[in-house]
Nucleic acid binder design. Sequence first.
DNA 1: CTTGACCTTCCAGCGACTGGAAGCACTACA
DNA 2: TGTAGTGCTTCCAGTCGCTGGAAGGTCAAG
Lengths: 141, 141
Amino acid sequence: MNIGTAAERSGLPAKTIRYYEEIGLLKPDRSDNGYRDYSAADVHKLRFLQRSRSLGFSVEECRQLLSLYDDQERESADVKAIAQAKLAEIDRKLAELAGLRDMLRHLVANCHGDDRPDCPIIDGLSGEGDLRSAAACHGKG
Amino acid sequence: MNIGTAAERSGLPAKTIRYYEEIGLLKPDRSDNGYRDYSAADVHKLRFLQRSRSLGFSVEECRQLLSLYDDQERESADVKAIAQAKLAEIDRKLAELAGLRDMLRHLVANCHGDDRPDCPIIDGLSGEGDLRSAAACHGKG
DNA sequence: CTTGACCTTCCAGCGACTGGAAGCACTACA
DNA sequence: TGTAGTGCTTCCAGTCGCTGGAAGGTCAAG
């Protein structure tokens, strides 16, 4: 399929897809007319790239993760090591995101515009202290 | 406190902290000697910036989120609208991260290096199809 | 056979840092 | 009091990851 279709299906702009090719993340075939020709597997990779980039993984990290797919003949231990390191990082990110979510939920639920000027809600946003103590500033007692 | 201490406590490089000041995310006081002087609240903001940037939020999004803290006199409806929009995005990110984690867990648990060349593990990584069907390629069943 | 959408390459610019130079401020220690 | 060392300052340049735009080739429709 052409790059436009791949872009649509992956959620990435065509510009970005060409850039990913330029830096060696992906090598689509070329049609006789010189157009890039993406396979379903390419689109899978692109979708994966879109997801993991938007979640804060660097292009180099994405390259490593993609290598789990591409380098079928590498040592199983390597694959596991990479995947496990990423797992730990994902778990950390999950915890941080959950913290952010809880704080914002609390903010939505408890703030009515009557905030005092130094409400320590940011304590929660910054991941310090616990949610309930930050909550105290808005519960109006 | 000086920028070095703030850097240490926030997890951000001093360079980045100065850059955040330059683009107006933060305005620390200045000591008589011209050194930047960070308050505990500043460090909270920096920690928050460190977290949310690493989770894939843009600087502009972070600016909005910080405004929940800074613009105490803004309409409560505004605050809620911003927070709720971010909540939806965070929930989406949480779901995607959880998907990524589950796939990698499966990879760690089930791949022994005997993969066939087009194992569709990437289907799961790309967020398409469900985990169990991707799992089938490795379960050797 | 032209219009318009889509593709190509190339080059420039932007967002978000990051590194390094040149120089001032502070602490410590002879 | 001098001086070494560390940390701070500004400024400028470079990098990473895109992103926009120009100039031009390709293709399906009317």
